[in-house]
Write a protein that binds this DNA or RNA. Structure first.
Length: 283
DNA sequence: TAGTTCACCTGAAAGC
DNA sequence: TGCTTTCAGGTGAACT
């Protein structure tokens, strides 16, 4: 379940082996992920240099020497693995693909020497990759501020939540309000801020949004730090991230004691998604 | 216009 | 033991 911290960790893992490198060969093992690939996906990538890899919300954005931009979303189960060792006979002859390996990027340096082989695997295929031509707009143009940026602060959040009648949990998942938050970290941030997820978003008090913003930033920064600690493992082996090893205070802890007050953690459904919270200390 | 619900997808776990 | 059902969740489209 990649959220912003994990996508940031993935970006940090991929950037050293992709930036400044050329897409030597691109292999698509199917015609679509969540959405169909551009019919010229392969042709538009091969031979192009990836000049910069960045993250916006939960998207990875690769800027190409052609001016095209490649947006990649990991969906629910997407992950990249990097193999920067020389290709063995098996891999050369079979492509070395495993089940659900949908895309393979074989990178080269500017002299045509083989670089990293980067494989995108996505069991549930909720992820997608889309190419955007220069000047073309993309869905990311309408999303809210990055939560770790200075543009995301308490006055900004108050303004965006003003008059919102939806529940605060649902509102924080709305990417137009703040970019990159997912179910897990919204639950955790609301617990730390002691705000009941069922409260109307527009009714939060000033000090509550102050505290909420602080906790959103803290928890994301901590999670990125945790993911970063296992970057080496991610880059070289099987995609395991510190993220998954993180123990959450309320997420997935139904009926377990709240770490603050020992009351049982409750689970409800909001907008079709599970919400975990403590009814005793979140008001 | 704003808010809500559903489809997409597959593996794991639960239930029978 | 094996089959069936349920659940997980990010995003966009459809619906209210």
């Amino acid at each position: 379940m990649p959220e912003l911290p994990e996508v940031e960790t993935v970006k940090r893992g991929l950037a050293p082996v992709m930036e400044g490198q050329v897409f030597g060969r691109v292999t698509l093992n199917r015609t679509n992920l969540r959405f169909p690939f551009d019919p010229k996906f392969k042709q538009r990538l091969e031979g192009q240099t990836l000049t910069r890899l960045s993250r916006r919300a939960k998207f990875l954005q690769a800027e190409l020497s052609s001016g095209d931009r490649l947006f990649m979303h990991l969906g629910m189960s997407g992950r990249f693995t990097i193999n920067d060792k020389p290709q063995g006979r098996y891999q050369r002859e079979t492509g070395g693909t495993a089940k659900h390996d949908h895309v393979v990027f074989e990178m080269q340096d500017q002299h045509g020497q083989d670089g990293a082989r980067i494989t995108y695997n996505d069991t549930r295929r909720f992820g997608f990759m889309e190419l955007v031509a220069p000047g073309e707009t993309y869905r990311l143009d309408h999303i809210g501020p990055e939560p770790l940026s200075n543009q995301f602060n308490a006055p900004e959040l108050r303004a965006r939540l003003k008059d919102k009648k939806s529940q605060i949990k649902t509102a924080l998942l709305d990417q137009r309000i703040v970019a990159g938050l997912g179910n897990i970290y919204v639950c955790e941030a609301l617990h730390r801020a002691r705000i009941n997820p069922q409260r109307a978003a527009g009714k939060l008090k000033q000090n509550e949004t102050d505290i909420l913003v602080r906790h959103i930033k803290d928890i994301l920064a901590e999670a990125i730090e945790a993911g970063g600690s296992s970057l080496r493992d991610f880059a070289n082996t099987d995609g395991d991230l510190g993220y998954f090893q993180h123990r959450f205070r309320v997420y997935g802890q139904e009926n377990n004691p709240c770490p603050d007050c020992a009351a049982p953690v409750q689970r409800i459904t909001q907008g079709g998604r599970s919400t975990f919270f403590c009814g005793a200390c979140q008001h």
